[in-house]
């Protein structure tokens, strides 16, 4: 069976600074893959390249076996099949919570408005946000905003979710509610690729951990193997630094 997301030999440079230097990766149906690594190691860029928000220099990205990085493919059609959640939430401030969630299903997917509203309210209700449906995003806490952003990404019924450090901008006491939501999605069997700094969370939710270092996946494996017995020196050094900072 082919992977939902497959990345083959992807390279990307900003100017003459290489950011991704040949990434190979596959995320299978119902699988969660976590990208870990220092800031600047290329985690976010990789996610943005998969969602076609950044253009790759070389290699291929495949979605359900179809090459989507071909210039003849319309990027909006590809993005409709993926859900992306950003570190800074990026909710639309001029729209209510419900309007934020309904916009893409109605405008991009041409779904019936009533049906889209019903689905949005159902999702908001499931994640404890139903009473905020009529509020503007700036009335919500950071944790609530990020949960709305995840609901917004789910509302289009995506094939997979790309989560870009979804808890990094949150106050520590708000991290838990967002992680709980992602845990729920994993239990539902949602296919996910997530960049994260939360190691214990990555260990708990991910089927595979990929450690990025200077634009390369230098080590990958099941969480227990990668965290308990890393083989590469770079991985050990990264984990030791986190341990010193009490982040592990």
């Amino acid at each position: 069976m082919s992977a939902v997301i497959e990345v083959r030999g992807v390279t990307k440079a900003y100017g003459d600074k290489p950011v991704l230097r040949g990434i190979d990766l596959a995320v299978h149906e119902h699988q969660a893959v976590a990208l870990i690594g220092a800031s600047g190691s290329g985690k976010s860029t990789l996610l943005r390249c998969i969602d076609l928000l950044d253009e790759i220099d070389d290699g291929d990205v495949l979605l359900d076996g179809e090459v989507v990085t071909d210039p003849s493919v319309r990027p909006d059609r590809v993005r409709r099949r993926l859900g992306m959640v950003f570190q800074g939430y990026n909710l639309f401030p001029h729209l209510t919570v419900l309007e934020n969630v309904v916009l893409a299903p109605v405008r991009a997917h041409r779904r019936d408005r009533e049906e889209a509203r019903a689905h949005a309210l159902e999702l908001l209700d499931r994640f404890g946000l139903a009473d905020r449906a009529g509020d503007r995003p700036d009335r919500l806490s950071g944790g609530q905003q990020q949960r709305v952003a995840i609901v917004r990404a789910l509302a289009t019924r995506p094939r997979a979710l790309l989560l870009d450090e979804v808890t990094s901008a949150l106050d520590p006491e708000l991290v838990g509610e967002v992680l709980a939501l992602v845990r729920d999605l994993k239990a539902d069997g949602m296919t996910m690729l997530l960049a994260t700094h939360e190691m214990s969370f990555a260990a708990e939710v991910a089927d595979e951990i990929c450690f990025l270092h200077e634009g390369l996946i230098v080590e990958r494996g099941a969480p227990e193997q990668l965290f308990e017995a890393p083989e590469r020196e770079e991985t050990r050094r990264f984990l030791r630094r986190l341990l010193d900072a009490k982040r592990l």
Binding site: D76, R79, F86, G88, N90, F92, R107, A108, H109, A153
Partner: peptide, 21 residues
């Protein structure tokens, strides 16, 4: 710019992102 990106990420076209967001 993050607003345009969020709009594209949910699947809107460039024109729709401009018009609705």
């Amino acid at each position: 710019a993050s607003q345009r990106q969020a709009a594209l990420a949910v699947g809107l076209t460039e024109g729709q992102a401009l018009r609705f967001v």
